[in-house]
Write a protein that binds this DNA or RNA. Structure first.
Lengths: 210, 210
DNA sequence: GACTTACCGTAATGCCTGCTCCAATTGGAG
DNA sequence: CTCCAATTGGAGCAGGCATTACGGTAAGTC
């Protein structure tokens, strides 16, 4: 271990405080949604006064947007198509589905918040909502890539339909688990879903080649 | 003009006022969720003062619960398995799926509000949320019946899994449409989904009989 | 006409909200 | 040491919130 030269750890917090605030915010916003998240609650949870929150973030909307960005990054890092050693393309896709499910079980706040945010329709759309849509678009592209890789014989239209269906199933299964609790085995259901989407893709390809 | 009879309806409102309040509330709550729905906004929209709302409903929670109950009733009435003249059991199930999709397109507020409500986790759970769960349970039973009728060879466990998957797909597709707008043809996707669930059920039955 | 019931309107209650102001503290640089 | 910039502490503001108190009015009953 080294003596860290300049840093140590104790100088005025800054970076760490920002993380503490985000940690508190993701927990509360993931449970109560945008309107249900009060600055006072976040402040109480992270132990910093409201003024500190406003020093780090322009306003509440900015805070929630930052929450989404950070959560998405960690989520995205956890979700990659495994390498060739994992087996056939289908095997790899099923493993990836299981990994997505696991990360959703471990940190459901991100998607829960995102879904709540996206379902809302308010006259003036908050930035946090559009951030979620951007982020969601990236996720969609990644899934589309996987679909295209696993089922290379599909044409663009079929890829799009299948991707939409794949994401819909994922969202829906997540919601089911939120409702019914642990009685829904998310990992198993995601694998089931991945296989089903794959077989459907096979059938679609066969039909269009007919 | 001396005061004519003003025959039809003008006096002593009561029932009609209650409906006006519920109409306003379902629109606002369907767009903004529980916390986003203020009594003042509902009052402004229905033209009645806040005190009238509190005459008809105990509190905000009671109002939202009533909104859910009423919306569910109209939704449930719109969704029935069509009669034998519609064709094979699968045909009938697909038609029913299309009908569900249509009613969701026409009145998305019910499910949008329900999903937002169900995703929230607050320390003290509002009655409206439990009402949604009750209502949702009824819907699930109805779908389970349909699954059992269309695929009578399935055992109970398979029926349960398939029903969960069917509902998850429906929720997920609905959410997709909320995100992507009319570019998602909900009716078509619901039919697609119904057929896919059916084929999966066939395969499950064949496997368990193996 | 007196009394009751059902409903509407006004105005207020007290709490909570997002957000800001400003003074205090801290660590590093000169 | 002094000075500066980064942070925190806490008090405070205006506005919005759910909810209520209370008085008014119209119709129905006797």
């Amino acid at each position: 271990m080294t003596g860290p030269r300049t840093s140590g750890k104790k100088r005025a917090n800054g970076v760490e405080s920002r993380q503490r605030i985000l940690d508190a915010a993701v927990a509360i916003a993931g449970e109560r949604g945008y309107d249900g998240t009060s600055i006072a609650a976040v402040s109480a949870r992270c132990g910093l006064p409201a003024s500190s929150i406003y020093w780090h973030f322009r306003d509440k909307d900015d805070l929630i947007a930052a929450v989404i960005e950070r959560s998405f990054e960690t989520w995205l890092a956890a979700v990659e198509l495994p390498g060739e050693e994992a087996g056939t393309p289908l095997d790899r896709a099923v493993i990836m589905a299981a990994n997505v499910a696991k990360s959703l079980v471990n940190e459901p706040d991100f998607l829960r918040l995102g879904l709540m945010l996206a379902l809302e329709r308010r006259p003036e759309e908050p930035r946090s909502r559009t951030v979620f849509f951007q982020v969601r678009h990236i996720a969609r592209q990644r899934i589309e890539e996987v679909v295209r890789f696993v089922l290379p014989q599909l044409d663009d239209d079929a890829v799009r339909v299948l991707t939409t269906y794949a994401i819909a199933g994922a969202d829906g299964l997540f919601v089911q688990r939120e409702f019914n609790g642990d009685s829904v085995d998310l990992v198993e259901m995601f694998q089931f879903h991945a296989r089903l989407v794959y077989e459907t893709g096979l059938r679609m390809a066969a039909e269009s080649a007919r």
